[in-house]
């Protein structure tokens, strides 16, 4: 179907790469994921609705999606800056800083959670400065934001970096020689070029944060209605051997994230068309 709807191109390999992509995507992602939908289908509609709309679940969606959006937004701003600084400027120790960016992926999530809690608890390195000033991080929703910012950090940096490295200096020079100020060049020329990558990084950081479990449960405190994240709710269902309810909540998360990702991807597509 996709083949007939594709525009003509002189480049080869569409059939091969598309075929492989679809096959692999189906085998690894789509077929296994459909298992959750089928498992959920074992419930009646009212059972499903009651499970996914109980007050605790609603509170957890608010926390999970809210904290993930905040975390991803923080990462978008600082990740963009970090990528910029790492590509454009030079300063002592740059390579070390650059290499450290992947740390949040390599560190097992539980270790990340334990470590962040240790650092931000009231007797921790940072927490002991913050708590006397009335800022509580560990065991509050703020702690969840901190953990989700940490685990999503590499995404924006690493998606923006290659695009920035690839960006031609000539365009900037041209803009400058046509009389644009540096600020204009950055906002009118560079940022639009980076926007798709930025949005990708944001989408990925967000998506990753929504599902995160391992690091959050240590720092959140897991208080029902207050600091309980949705993946924890899934685990509590599993602990009761209630696979159907667990997958039901999983499906809700999946559909919501899918919708958000789809919107972000559309935005990205639109921004590319506009600035192309």
């Amino acid at each position: 179907m996709a083949l007939s709807l594709k525009q003509r191109s002189v480049l080869p390999g569409f059939g091969l790469t598309m075929g492989f992509t679809l096959l692999y995507l189906s085998l690894i992602v789509l077929i296994p994921l459909s298992a959750t939908f089928l498992k959920t289908a074992a419930m009646s509609w009212s059972q499903f609705w009651n499970t996914v709309t109980e007050p605790r679940a609603l509170a957890s969606y608010r926390l999970s999606f809210g904290a993930s959006l905040i975390g991803a937004a923080i990462n978008m701003v600082f990740g963009m800056l970090a990528a910029w600084v790492l590509v454009r400027y030079s300063f002592p120790g740059k390579r070390v800083v650059d290499a450290m960016v992947d740390l949040p992926f390599a560190l097992p999530t539980a270790v990340a959670g334990i470590t962040l809690t240790a650092v931000f608890a009231r007797n921790g390195w940072i927490g002991s400065y913050l708590e006397p000033r009335g800022i509580k991080v560990a065991f509050t929703p703020l702690g969840v934001v901190v953990a989700l910012t940490f685990i999503g950090l590499p995404f924006v940096v690493r998606t923006v970096q290659p695009v920035l490295q690839d960006l031609d200096a000539e365009i900037e020079e041209a803009a400058a020689s046509l009389g644009a100020s540096r600020w204009q060049t950055v906002t009118r020329v560079i940022l639009p070029a980076l926007l798709p990558a930025l949005l990708t990084g944001f989408a990925l950081a967000f998506a990753r944060a929504v599902g995160e479990y391992g690091s959050v449960i240590f720092i959140s405190g897991n208080m029902p209605m207050r600091t309980e994240i949705t993946p924890l709710l899934i685990v509590t269902k599993l602990e009761q051997y209630d696979y159907a309810a667990a997958t039901a909540i999983g499906v809700v998360m999946l559909v919501m994230s899918f919708a958000l990702l789809f919107i972000i991807n559309l935005l990205q597509w639109w921004s590319r068309r506009r600035y192309a």
């Binding site: 809690t117 240790a118 007797n123 065991f139 405190g221 897991n222 208080m223």
Partner: peptide, 19 residues
């Protein structure tokens, strides 16, 4: 104040976090 997900986590909260 904190509901850890497991007994080990609770011990850490009490012993190492001083809560």
């Amino acid at each position: 104040p904190v509901l850890d997900s497991g007994a080990r986590g609770a011990t850490t909260t009490f012993v190492e976090r001083g809560i």
